[in-house]
Design a protein around this nucleic acid. Structure first.
Length: 656
RNA sequence: GCCGAUGUAGCUCAAUAGGCAGAGCAACCGAUUUGUAAUCGGUAGGUUACGGGUUCAACUCCCGUCGUCGGCUCCA
């Protein structure tokens, strides 16, 4: 793996495509075809040789930890994106010093060139071996129980240690339990491993960090201590990875956004509640103008709705039973009436739909609003602008008939694609988010036939439209399946940027109807869509996507006039006014700095154009145009610069 | 929310071992009037996140609160 692709893929839930036709499948770009791949996690793949190294290092780490901390009970330790981790049950958390000791011990073990030996054992033998480790015993329970189920599943092709799809069928097929032993350490494990630690370069791995992690990821379970390690084949690859990580931090929107004075957080305001500075305000205005233009063209009508509402509305919508924990607690008025901050706009739009009888002639009805919503996200989930508690959504609800569904749904998907073209966004994946049967009646509306039907409608629409996507279970909204556009932050976290959701559940709850041709009252389908997501997440994403160097139409300051001497300031002010009249966001740097430093400051703010003005320019009613790329376009008449900038702004051009 | 780390000037970072809190940039003032990424000099800027405690003495050690950062299935 190399370059940014590697970074974009480094995610705790990174999604890869199983569909080989998907052009955004980054694994396709980074794998040499000759290399044998192995699946792990949710449909992700890595070279088998690397997998073995990482998996084996996890065991070596477990050996080192159990030697240094005899109380530690190993639980699970898989290979992951850039290395491996292992979770231990320990009386106290590991310190950075502990990690250094563990890493040193690991290196000794690796250098001993010990063999990895595989054994098959019976259930009873396995239980005896791990009798002191309740976590391993629980895993054995699972293996024994899972064995029967797995019999029916696809099993590994002959000669391959694992099923091609990386499913859990690995061991169940034969109902065998396997253990691996290296040196003094034995672990319950399905493998595969290196045959000897001489296959591991002792300088190509490093322990990264430790942290708490719940057993099986469930906060109701006991907390374990996880140690993450990085591992590659060569020290150069490790160094390269660390270097790329450094680069990624540089474009982190939390750092860049503050430096560019786009937004800030203030302790007194509250966590997850961003304040937009004037520069951010401009970006917001531009995005909204774009959205309004696109939505106008696509036949949307704009509405406005309040930020708070009675409990009753969210009881009707079903949000309270399903979503209460991610809503701010209610405020109670004197008469006992409860009001909630809205986490979504849909119930209000439904009310607008319901305000009068609707005919099939009114459909599709498309109600759009840049609505501000509030969600009480868990404190540990907050992440810069990407996950906040107040957000402005590029929201709209499309009410349509079942016959209109496909074209409306594809219309929304095409809107996404138009936007992404404008922004030059190509590193994203479309995910069809499905329900999970286990969540019916809890996370999801309990109507399996309708789930299956609407999921299939979406699947068909996407296929008919030739839009590549992959499917993920248990990611749907409570009221229906959706297409999510997944992107990755600079440091590799995955987020849903845009969403397009089918709602078959809520319109009936609001008694939404229309009178069809045949005079019958029918219930419309509803699409919830947010192609630009929220301002917060979208701008956070754009900051990283452009590394702060926004295209001209989005740049908060588009042109900085730089007088060489004080006698040029007045002329600069005149040009500034002229540019502003022409719709170009210009400013004059009339500070005490020398020209060189003014250029440096404008560069740092990533202002697209620096217009240098000296005697010559003043004489000629001109400006000397320098691009933030460093390119010098030399002097040109003001009018010529205006024409150039206006053209680029109007066409949302990415070029300068 | 939970585990851990962390919080010094607007920003980036110092402060030997508990002993008067410091620098660069930014800001302000003055000089300079400069041709494509840092002109020179000066001034000001702090209840060391907040609240307790230990001590003759706390940025430093202890406790609590708040914020931030990393992690919380990528399942043997």
């Amino acid at each position: 793996m190399r370059g940014l692709e590697a970074l974009f893929r480094r995610s705790t839930h990174a999604a890869a495509n199983s569909d080989p036709g998907v052009k955004n499948d980054m694994s396709q770009m980074t794998n040499s075809p000759a290399e044998e791949m192995i699946s792990y996690g949710k449909g992700k793949r890595m070279p088998l040789a690397l997998y073995k190294v990482r998996h084996s290092l996890a065991h070596v780490m477990a050996q080192a930890v159990t030697e240094l901390f005899p109380d530690a009970k190993p639980t699970i330790g898989p290979p992951v994106e850039n290395g491996f981790y292992y979770d231990f049950s320990v009386p106290r958390a590991f310190t950075p010093e502990d990690l250094a000791r563990i890493e040193a011990r690991m290196r000794e073990i690796v250098k001993k060139h010990v063999d990895f030996v595989r054994h098959e054992v019976s259930e009873a033998e396995a239980r005896a071996l791990f009798k002191d480790n309740p976590f391993k015993l629980e895993l054995i329970d699972g293996l024994v129980r899972g064995a029967a189920d797995d019999m029916g599943e696809q099993v590994s092709p002959a000669g391959s240690p694992l099923p091609a799809d990386g499913s859990r069928a690995g061991q169940g097929a034969a109902g065998v339990i396997t253990i691996y032993t290296q040196d003094t350490f034995t672990d319950l494990c399905r493998g595969p491993h290196v045959s000897n630690t001489r296959e591991i370069n002792p300088d190509a791995f490093a322990l990264a960090q430790s942290s708490g992690a719940y057993w099986r990821g469930d906060e109701k379970n006991p907390m374990l201590q996880r140690i993450y390690g990085l591992a590659f084949h060569t020290p150069e690859e490790l160094q390269h990875y660390l270097h790329m990580q450094e680069e990624a931090r540089r474009r982190d929107h939390r750092k860049l956004g503050t430096e560019l004075e786009i937004f800030l957080f203030d302790e007194e305001v509250g966590p997850g509640l961003p304040l937009w500075q004037p520069n951010g305000g401009i970006i917001i205005e531009q995005l909204e103008a774009l959205a309004k233009k696109m939505e106008e063209e696509a036949g949307y009508e704009r509405v406005k709705t309040p930020h708070v509402t009675k409990e009753e509305l969210f009881l009707r919508s079903g949000h309270l039973p399903y979503y209460a924990e991610s809503m701010y607690p209610p405020m109670t008025l004197e008469d006992g009436q409860k009001y909630y901050l809205k986490p979504m706009n849909c119930p209000f739009h439904h009310k607008i739909y319901a305000a009068k009888p609707r005919s099939y002639r009114d459909l599709p009805l498309r109600l759009a609003e840049y609505g501000t919503c509030y969600r009480y996200e868990q404190s540990g989930e907050l992440f810069g602008l990407m996950r906040v508690r107040s957000m402005q959504m590029n929201d709209a609800h499309i009410y349509c008939t079942e016959e209109q569904f496909e074209s409306e749904f594809l219309g929304v998907v095409n809107l996404y694609l138009k936007y992404f073209k404008i922004f030059g966004v190509d590193k994203y994946v479309m995910r069809l988010s499905l329900h999970a049967d286990a969540g019916l009646g809890k996370k999801y509306v309990d109507n399996k036939p309708l789930w299956l039907k609407t999921e299939d409608m979406v699947r068909r629409a996407m296929r008919d439209g030739n839009v590549p996507f992959y499917e993920a279970e248990d990611e749907a909204a409570f009221y229906g399946p959706k297409i999510d556009v997944q992107i990755y932050s600079a440091i590799g976290r995955e987020f849903t940027l845009a969403t397009n959701q089918v709602d078959f559940a809520v319109p009936p709850r609001f008694n939404l109807t229309y009178v069809d041709r045949d005079g019958q009252e029918k219930t419309p389908l509803c699409l919830h869509r947010a192609p630009l997501g929220t301002h917060e997440r979208f701008i956070g994403f754009l900051i990283e996507h452009f590394a702060g160097a926004f295209p001209v139409w989005l740049a908060p300051v588009q042109a900085m006039l730089i007088p060489i001497a004080d006698r040029h300031v007045e002329y600069c002010r005149r040009v500034e006014k002229q540019l502003r009249t022409c719709g170009i966001r210009a400013r004059v740097d009339d500070g005490p700095d020398r020209m060189q430093n003014k250029i440096r400051k404008a560069q740092a703010m990533k202002i697209p154009y620096m217009l240098v003005v000296g005697d010559k320019e003043m004489q000629a009613e001109a400006v000397a145009v320098r691009l933030r790329t460093g390119e010098d376009l030399r002097a040109m008449p003001v009018g010529q610069f205006v024409a150039r900038a206006q053209e680029l702004i109007e066409t949302y051009a990415l070029a300068l």
